[in-house]
Amino acid sequence: MAEPVHSDEPLLTTPLHAEHVALGARMVPFAGYDMPVQYPTGILTEHNWTREHAGLFDVSHMGQAALGGPDHETTARALEALIPADIVNLKPGQQRYSQLLDENGGILDDLMVTRPTTDEEKGYIYLVVNASMKEADYAHIQARLPQGVTLVRGDDRALLALQGPSAEGVLARLGSGAVNLSFMMSGWFEIAGLRCHVSRSGYTGEDGFEISVKSDDAVALWRALLADPDVKPIGLGARDSLRLEAGLCLYGHDIDPTTSPIEAGLTWSIQKRRREEGGFPGAARIQRELKEGPARVRVGIRPEGRAPAREGTVITTPDGREVGIVTSGGFGPTVNGPVAMGYVARDVSSVGTDLHLIVRGKPLPAKVAAMPFAPHRYKR
């Protein structure tokens, strides 16, 4: 999780702020918002509850928006000029992960892209972007749209994530048809009598749902979900440890304008047509890295012993050659030990390669490890 950023600007709040305070959450500044980092039971308990039952996250600080155009192809091609994913061939209800790229192929932000299912939304494409980057993203997108395609902000909507093996059962008990979705599919459904846009996706590696609802209905939905004994509220602390075990990137840490999707191990998010045709910012670099391999790559790291390696830790070979840096690290409750991600030179990136992590001036042994650290349990 990013360190809280302190500024003189007053902190923004989500529609669920009073709910978090009432539940005894410890609130911290995060991406300009006052957000819950943990509830009274603590991060470890929240992490394990999500892996075993269902965790409920307030992610209303994220940026929700839509691109609108005369038809799907026009809107999709406008977006494809900014990101490397294949959006033209998205099916109704299908969701894709991608990245906004700069002219050098560096990552300006990562985002989720969804094609709606309903006829009245023909020509629309939904976007969810990171909270810390949403104003910059909106300005970047707006400035590059062709005539006839517009950006529509969704500032009047909240976003909740219900994650964990019990998530499907919780929605089934509330009578929602969203349980019939498969991974990375979406649609409009009623949950507890409220009209919601639901995708079967998340940021924990578990099966789960992300639920967009009108801000005015957010408290009612939050309370309806928490009324189920399988559901507990989860803060940013456990959200970070869950995504780290799942091997998922955090923008501003594991990916940023200095990293390309190929270095970051996100080649899978660039479909074959786009790899071949290009036509997106930084395509020349990305096509070169696909052909020749990048100089450095993101890898999983398992430190030996119990000491975690934090972001910024220098990585060397056992003989002292500096080969990279840790970008995310901490304790993995599910794997019961420290886990980390970072970038290393390609010649030391194979699983099982011995490394040293320089922690407080001392070299601690570690190995390159396969990711995810905890298995993904998506419903395909």
Rank of each mutant, 00 (worst) to 15 (best):
K134P: 01
V149H: 09
D8S: 13
I315N: 04
I125Q: 08
E304H: 10
H20L: 10
H376L: 04
R173L: 09
E80A: 05
P165K: 12
A246K: 02
T313Y: 02
L101F: 13
S201T: 12
P146Q: 14
G55Y: 09
G332I: 03
A370L: 13
T14K: 06
G205M: 11
D216Y: 00
A158Q: 05
L266T: 03
E190T: 10
L12V: 03
S349L: 07
L151P: 13
I125D: 08
G279I: 07
M112L: 14
E245W: 01
D8I: 10
I211M: 12
T316W: 05
S269D: 12
K362L: 14
M185H: 15
T313M: 08
V299Y: 09
P257L: 06
K91L: 15
A370Y: 10
S7R: 00
M27W: 02
G205L: 07
E73M: 00
V359K: 12
N89H: 13
L108E: 07
D207V: 12
G68P: 03
A143M: 10
V314P: 01
E304W: 07
V326H: 03
E190R: 11
I325H: 05
S350R: 14
A178G: 04
E276K: 15
Q94Y: 07
D354W: 06
P233N: 09
G305M: 09
T204F: 07
R77E: 13
E9P: 01
R223K: 14
R273Y: 07
G279C: 07
T317S: 05
G300V: 02
T75Y: 15
L174W: 07
A218I: 06
R275T: 05
L226K: 06
M184G: 07
L145W: 02
T353R: 11
I255C: 15
L82V: 09
M133D: 05
M27Q: 05
A284V: 04
R239V: 08
G202C: 06
P333E: 10
P229D: 13
H72I: 10
T353F: 08
L226H: 04
P15I: 10
V28T: 06
G63W: 00
C249S: 15
L355G: 07
S212A: 13
V299S: 14
T13I: 10
C249Q: 11
A167H: 14
